[in-house]
Simulated scan of single mutants.
Amino acid sequence: MDDLSALPGPRPVDRLAAMRRSYALGTLDEHEVDPDPVEQLRRWLEDAERAGLVEPNAMVLATVDEAGEPAARTVLLKGLDERGLTFYTQRRSAKARQLAARPSAAAVFPWHGMDRQVIVRGPVTEVDRAEVVEYFAARPRGNQVAAWASVQSSPVPDRATLERAYAEADARFGAEVPVPDHWAGYRIQPLVVELWQGRRDRLHDRVRYRKEQGGWVVERLSP
């Protein structure tokens, strides 16, 4: 392996320490946000989509297993309404096993291109089967076949093994691919939602919603 320390210029760690830019694309006022955080999230999602950001519905999902070990990965938001944020995966995946042990999660939308971020935290429940069937039917057929071919998060000897499993599943089904029993949807019910807007000199705007018995409390946080 090349010795990066021998490259011209600052050492890699020094280059990382020097990486920074000023954020100046927008502002965020706690008195101007929508009183409903789900509606505010929807507005920012629409802003991200109009801005042409890649995968604006991508969110980093953080979970904890039964031993308290954290894990994070990127998933796609596939539903957003008053009930919460919905995504889909296999029940046999690592994240589904973690959610079965500890049904709570955090999700982060990192919209770097707009100097924005949203964090959502709350309990997680499975969505009902009718919603799972409806969503699965709307997926491209290749994605449907892959749900049968892949035992998500489990070791596989090589790529060829995975492709053979896909070919076998592809040959097994016709135009309509049924929903596997192991395919499920999960919904995060927001209890805390934080909006972040980057500002100059690291004096960022942070606005947090907290769910209380009487409704949502909206407050500004120090950056």
Results as ranks from 00 to 15, higher is better:
L41S: 03
A67I: 01
G26S: 11
E39W: 00
R91Q: 13
G52Q: 11
G79Y: 11
P35S: 05
G68H: 12
L28P: 00
L80D: 08
E69T: 15
V38T: 15
A51H: 02
G84C: 01
L53Y: 00
P70M: 10
L28D: 07
E30G: 09
R50L: 03
L41A: 03
Y88W: 12
R42W: 00
K78M: 06
L85N: 11
D81V: 12
D36H: 08
Y88E: 08
W44T: 02
G52E: 07
L28V: 08
L80N: 01
P37A: 10
H31W: 02
D36T: 06
R91M: 10
R73Q: 01
L76A: 01
E82R: 15
N57Q: 14
D29E: 09
G79R: 04
T63Q: 04
V64Y: 08
A67W: 11
R43K: 13
L76F: 06
A51E: 13
P35L: 08
T89A: 12
L77S: 03
L53C: 04
R91K: 14
V54A: 13
W44M: 11
W44A: 05
L53Q: 01
E55H: 11
L28T: 08
R43A: 13
V75I: 15
R42D: 13
E46W: 09
D81H: 13
R83M: 04
D47N: 12
L80Y: 10
A72C: 14
L77G: 04
V38A: 02
R73A: 11
D47C: 02
E55L: 12
E49I: 13
V75M: 08
V75W: 02
P37L: 04
L45A: 03
V60G: 11
P70G: 10
T27M: 00
T74Y: 03
L77A: 08
T27N: 08
V60E: 10
R42N: 09
E46I: 10
F87Y: 14
A67R: 14
D34W: 03
L25E: 12
D81Q: 02
V54Y: 07
P70H: 07
G84K: 02
K78F: 04
L76Q: 05
G68I: 05
R50C: 02
P56H: 11
D65N: 15
E39D: 14
K78A: 12
L85T: 06
G26I: 11
A62L: 10
T27Y: 00
E49Q: 13
D34E: 09
L85V: 09
Q90T: 08
E39V: 14
Q40W: 05
V60W: 07
Q90L: 05
R50H: 14
E30M: 08
G26V: 04
G79P: 06
L85H: 10
P56I: 05
E69H: 12
L80R: 07
V75H: 07
E55M: 06
V38F: 03
G26E: 03
V64E: 08
P70A: 07
T89Q: 06
G79V: 07
G26T: 05
V38L: 10
D65Q: 12
R83Q: 14
E66P: 00
Y88M: 01
A48M: 01
W44Y: 11
L77M: 10
A51R: 01
D34V: 05
D34F: 01
R43Q: 13
G79S: 05
T89R: 08
N57M: 10
G68F: 05
P56V: 07
A48F: 09
K78V: 04
A71G: 15
